[in-house]
Amino acid sequence: MSAAETAAETSPARSRIASLDVLRGIAILGTFASNAWLFAVPGGALVWFAGGLGPQDPVEAGLRLLSNGKFLALLTLLFGVGLELQYRAAVRRGNPWPGRYPLRALILFAEGLVHYLLVFEFDVLMGYAITSVLVAYLVGRSDSAVRLWMRTVGAIFVGMVLVLTALLVLTPDGPAQPLAVDPAATASWTAQVADRVQYFLLFRIEIVLIVPSATVLFLVGSRLLRAGAFADTEVGAGIRKRLMIIGLGVAFPLNVLTTFGGADWFLVDRYLLPPLVALGLLGLVTSIVVRSRRELGPMRRGLAAVGRTALSCYVLQNVLAGALCYGWGLGLAARFADARPWWVLGLWAGVCAVLVVAASLWLRRFDRGPLELVMHRLYAPRRASVAAEKG
Rank of each mutant, 00 (worst) to 15 (best):
P102M: 00
I130T: 13
A73F: 07
V59D: 08
R92T: 13
G127Y: 01
G154C: 03
L77Q: 03
A136Y: 00
G94F: 08
L65A: 11
F122N: 13
L162C: 13
P58C: 09
T171P: 11
V133H: 05
V161M: 09
L53Y: 11
L113I: 10
W97C: 12
F79M: 08
L85I: 10
V158Q: 01
V59S: 09
Y101K: 10
Q56M: 15
G140M: 01
G54F: 07
T131K: 04
T76C: 11
V158L: 11
V133E: 06
N68I: 10
Y101T: 09
Q86N: 06
L103K: 13
G159M: 06
L138N: 04
L113N: 01
F122E: 14
R88L: 14
L118E: 01
L138P: 07
L125D: 04
S67V: 12
D143W: 03
E121Y: 10
A89D: 10
N68C: 04
P42N: 07
T131P: 05
A50D: 14
V91D: 09
R104G: 08
R93K: 15
G154S: 03
D57H: 12
L164R: 12
L66C: 13
F109S: 00
L103Q: 12
R64V: 11
T152Y: 09
I130M: 15
L167W: 11
G82C: 02
D123I: 09
L138F: 01
A166S: 14
P96H: 03
L63C: 11
D57V: 10
P58W: 04
Q56F: 07
F157H: 12
W149Y: 14
S142Y: 03
D123L: 06
T152N: 12
V158P: 04
P42L: 04
T76I: 07
W97A: 11
A105M: 00
G80M: 02
V139I: 15
P102C: 02
E84G: 06
G99F: 01
T171V: 11
P96F: 00
P102T: 01
W48A: 15
T165S: 14
A105W: 00
V158G: 01
V161Y: 02
W149S: 14
L164Y: 04
G80K: 02
L106I: 09
W97L: 09
G62Y: 04
G51D: 04
F120N: 06
V146R: 15
L75A: 14
L148I: 04
E121R: 08
T131C: 13
R92S: 14
L134C: 11
L46W: 00
L63T: 12
G54L: 09
L164V: 08
